[in-house]
Simulated scan of single mutants.
Amino acid sequence: MAADHQGRQELPPLDTLAARLEYLFDTIRPSQEELGRSEEPGRKYTNKEVADKINGRQAETGVSISAAYVGELRRGVACDPRTSHVRALARAFGVHSGYFVDDAAADRVQEQIRLLGELRRMGVKQVALRQVLADTGLSSADSRLVEQMVARLQALGGSHQNGH
């Protein structure tokens, strides 16, 4: 199964909500704007930062969450969150909410994140990225998501790449 496609063996199974959430914590990093100047670029989000992102939009979404509850979801202690929490977590990480409940959506997001990592390492620019995405046959919504994620990764790496 894992040997069928090159690179597939690197992708962990996302068979629980906790595994899917942990994968996002492991692969998606705070932007430089979120970190501030004094913090280490490329570090992982904390439970509190994700909760703060969600709570910062409470007036708009009506959703609040505690850092402790985010931690319980990550560990699988809590495993049946409200739909509003699932949507808020997805929004905080910039992924489709289907990622948490649909295997095909989770696989698609995981593959997109892997592709983004490769694109980032290759130094692909935005215009070239649009062409690559057009050639993959992704939906326009998925293509926009990938572009947003690349822009976020580029912002994180900007201090290292200095515009290269």
Score class of each variant (00 low, 15 high):
Y69A: 07
V124F: 10
I113F: 13
R130I: 10
D102W: 04
P30A: 01
A68D: 07
A134W: 08
G123Y: 14
R57K: 11
G94N: 01
P81C: 15
A51E: 07
L14G: 00
R20G: 04
E34A: 07
T61D: 03
V70W: 04
P13W: 12
V132N: 01
V95G: 13
E40T: 13
Q9H: 06
L129Q: 08
E34I: 06
A105E: 13
T83A: 08
T16C: 10
I54E: 02
V124Q: 02
A78V: 12
R121P: 11
K125C: 09
G56V: 03
D52P: 09
Q131R: 10
D102P: 01
V63H: 02
G76Q: 07
E39K: 15
A3C: 09
A90V: 04
P81M: 14
I65G: 02
V109A: 15
K125I: 03
L11A: 09
G76S: 12
R75G: 12
A90N: 12
P30L: 05
A51N: 00
R108Y: 06
A19K: 12
A88V: 03
V70G: 09
E118W: 09
A68C: 00
E39N: 07
A2K: 12
A128G: 08
L115A: 15
F93K: 08
D52A: 14
S84K: 14
L115W: 06
G56D: 06
S84P: 13
I54K: 00
A2E: 15
P81L: 13
R130L: 06
A92K: 07
G56K: 02
Q110S: 14
F25L: 06
S66R: 02
I113L: 14
A18S: 14
R57W: 02
D80A: 13
R37T: 03
G98H: 10
P30K: 05
Q131N: 02
F25M: 12
A106M: 10
P13T: 11
E22Q: 09
A51V: 09
H5V: 09
A106E: 11
E34W: 11
Q131A: 00
V77Y: 05
Y23L: 03
D15N: 03
A105C: 04
V109R: 01
L17C: 02
D4V: 13
G42C: 11
L89Y: 00
Q131C: 01
G98K: 09
A104P: 00
E60C: 00
K48M: 02
K48S: 04
T61F: 05
T83N: 07
S64H: 14
Q32M: 11
I113T: 09
A106Y: 11
A59I: 10
E33V: 06
T27P: 01
